[in-house]
Amino acid sequence: MWLILCLALFFSSGQTALATEQVEVFDSDQQKVIATFDNTPALQKEAQLILDSVSGRVLEFNPSLDHVRVVKIPLVPPKRLTQRSAGIEADIAEMFVVIPKKGSRPPWLILHTKQYETIVVEFSVSVKTLKELVKLP
């Protein structure tokens, strides 16, 4: 009985689920993933802060993916995003934070929903903490 209880607690732990999904940093200039990290509670918390600051859809027809770093964060479990003014109500399974290396364009998000849809949005929170967590300059 104790063994079953211990195994149930081990497999229901949020830490176990997070450990299976890696956070990746992609560099568009190098055209490859340059770093991977464990998907820690700190990264999940930062991802939630970013999602909470979504201000609307990206209005540019085709935002540039040149000279950027993209931080891919799987959301475990998926997070609910409701942004009524932009008509967004979805469960987000994965977020890609696009961080331009130079220029005046602020960072933006590419979101993948549980329903396999893609949403491109702006957000207002600083990416300073995220950059520290994934060791970006």
Results as ranks from 00 to 15, higher is better:
residue 64 S to R: 10
residue 69 R to L: 09
residue 48 Q to F: 09
residue 110 I to Q: 13
residue 23 V to E: 00
residue 49 L to I: 08
residue 132 E to I: 10
residue 120 V to F: 09
residue 18 L to F: 01
residue 65 L to Y: 11
residue 119 I to V: 15
residue 66 D to S: 15
residue 64 S to W: 09
residue 136 L to W: 02
residue 106 P to V: 01
residue 65 L to K: 11
residue 74 P to G: 00
residue 102 K to V: 10
residue 129 T to M: 13
residue 39 N to Y: 00
residue 62 N to K: 12
residue 64 S to L: 10
residue 135 K to P: 06
residue 33 V to T: 13
residue 108 W to E: 04
residue 39 N to S: 01
residue 117 E to V: 07
residue 63 P to E: 10
residue 28 S to Q: 11
residue 99 I to C: 05
residue 134 V to H: 04
residue 135 K to D: 13
residue 135 K to T: 13
residue 62 N to R: 12
residue 8 A to H: 08
residue 131 K to Q: 13
residue 132 E to Q: 15
residue 90 A to F: 06
residue 54 V to M: 05
residue 43 L to F: 04
residue 7 L to M: 13
residue 6 C to F: 15
residue 26 F to P: 02
residue 57 R to H: 11
residue 52 D to M: 09
residue 102 K to Q: 14
residue 41 P to C: 03
residue 34 I to G: 04
residue 118 T to V: 14
residue 109 L to Q: 03
residue 125 V to N: 07
residue 25 V to M: 03
residue 69 R to H: 07
residue 57 R to G: 09
residue 73 I to T: 00
residue 22 Q to M: 12
residue 98 V to A: 05
residue 10 F to H: 09
residue 90 A to T: 08
residue 26 F to G: 05
residue 93 A to E: 08
residue 85 S to W: 08
residue 60 E to F: 03
residue 71 V to W: 02
residue 77 P to M: 02
residue 94 E to H: 07
residue 102 K to N: 12
residue 107 P to V: 10
residue 87 G to Y: 11
residue 115 Q to K: 12
residue 92 I to N: 00
residue 46 E to S: 11
residue 127 V to I: 11
residue 58 V to D: 09
residue 16 T to D: 02
residue 74 P to Q: 00
residue 15 Q to S: 09
residue 30 Q to D: 04
residue 37 F to H: 11
residue 77 P to N: 01
residue 114 K to Q: 11
residue 81 L to F: 08
residue 71 V to D: 03
residue 65 L to T: 14
residue 88 I to Q: 15
residue 123 F to E: 03
residue 80 R to M: 14
residue 54 V to G: 04
residue 116 Y to C: 01
residue 45 K to R: 15
residue 40 T to C: 03
residue 8 A to T: 14
residue 2 W to I: 12
residue 95 M to H: 00
residue 41 P to F: 02
residue 47 A to S: 06
residue 75 L to N: 00
residue 2 W to P: 12
residue 116 Y to F: 07
residue 130 L to S: 07
residue 23 V to W: 00
residue 87 G to R: 14
residue 35 A to N: 13
residue 70 V to P: 00
residue 105 R to F: 04
residue 72 K to G: 03
residue 107 P to I: 07
residue 68 V to K: 03
residue 5 L to K: 14
residue 25 V to T: 01
residue 18 L to C: 01
residue 136 L to H: 04
residue 68 V to H: 05
residue 65 L to E: 15
residue 13 S to D: 07
residue 72 K to A: 08
residue 108 W to Y: 12
residue 50 I to P: 00
residue 43 L to N: 04
residue 30 Q to P: 01
residue 107 P to Y: 08
residue 20 T to Q: 12
residue 113 T to G: 08
residue 122 E to H: 09
residue 87 G to C: 14
residue 47 A to D: 03
residue 31 Q to P: 06
residue 57 R to Q: 13
residue 52 D to L: 11
residue 71 V to I: 06
residue 71 V to P: 02
residue 59 L to P: 06
residue 20 T to K: 13
residue 125 V to L: 08
residue 109 L to N: 02
residue 43 L to H: 03
residue 87 G to M: 13
residue 111 L to A: 07
residue 58 V to M: 08
residue 31 Q to D: 13
residue 107 P to T: 07
residue 45 K to S: 12
residue 46 E to M: 09
residue 2 W to A: 14
